[in-house]
């Protein structure tokens, strides 16, 4: 599904990612762990198309060159980034935003756009699954949301848009244990044989709830070690500093 070959990314001539390689097959859950400044967020930004990086190398998503796709085209193809810091958008009703987003994606895929009633039915169902207070959906997008509500809102969006590849950028940071469980349940309920996940995190904690198939350690812009879930525990015990 996703093939990253020799990815190099600079920002203002500072090297962030270098010789980065990763392959994700349909249905797999990969976790990338790394200390601050190792390039984790850069990776998620580049995958979703954020401008401002000098990049070289190759990223193929379902055999399409990702660098040729605009931000929204990547979303249409099924890439979703759950933001580390979801933006507050004043004046934009959350429900209306969700509907606009879903219909933009459906339209691009040649599917029928949902009308207000069909959409509300879907959103109610998903919100219930995620134990998400529906009242929040009538508020302005992320405005005045608590940290947990913002993250849950990301997972709700993910669940409604049903992407093929979901990238979770430190979704666990700032979450209390109950919110963490809800987020993990949300991810687990979306695990299907065609849906893949890339989970970016500092801590092993989230991986207690979402069992990854592979764990990669990212340091100074490249993966220095890959393994199974046990690698996360090892990392937790040793710390990043002693790992190199």
């Amino acid at each position: 599904m996703l093939k990253i070959k020799n990815l190099k990314a600079d920002i203002d001539s500072k090297s962030i990612l270098n010789n980065f390689n990763l392959q994700i097959k349909p249905g797999e859950v990969h976790a990338i762990m790394g200390p601050n400044g190792s390039g984790k967020s850069t990776l998620s930004n580049i995958l979703s198309g954020k401008k401002g990086y000098d990049v070289s190398g190759e990223i193929l998503f379902e055999n399409k060159n990702l660098f040729e796709l605009e931000i929204e085209e990547r979303a249409h193809k099924g890439i979703f980034l759950a933001f580390q810091y979801p933006l507050e958008i004043p004046g934009v009703n959350t429900n209306i935003f969700l509907k606009t987003s879903l219909n933009a994606i459906r339209k691009a895929r040649g599917e029928k756009e949902l009308d207000a009633i069909e959409f509300l039915k879907l959103v109610k169902l998903k919100a219930k699954e995620l134990k998400f207070d529906e009242e929040i959906l009538n508020r302005q997008l992320n405005v005045g949301f608590s940290g947990g509500e913002k993250k849950k809102n990301e997972i709700l969006q993910m669940s409604i848009l049903n992407p093929k590849l979901s990238i979770l950028d430190e979704t666990d940071s700032g979450l209390d244990i109950d919110a963490l469980k809800i987020v993990a349940d949300g991810v687990n309920s979306l695990r299907k044989k065609d849906n893949s996940f890339l989970i970016i995190t500092h801590y092993q904690r989230l991986l207690d709830y979402i069992k990854p198939d592979y764990v990669h350690v990212l340091m100074e812009g490249k993966i220095i070690k890959s393994g199974g879930p046990e690698l996360a525990l090892e990392l937790e015990n040793k710390g990043y500093e002693n790992f190199n």
Partner: peptide, 20 residues
């Protein structure tokens, strides 16, 4: 960027922000 990553094109994202 946030809005575009949810499938809206630049013009749609801009319009949504301005309207908001």
């Amino acid at each position: 960027f946030y809005l575009m990553s949810r499938g809206l094109n630049y013009q749609e994202a801009k319009k949504l922000l301005i309207n908001g």
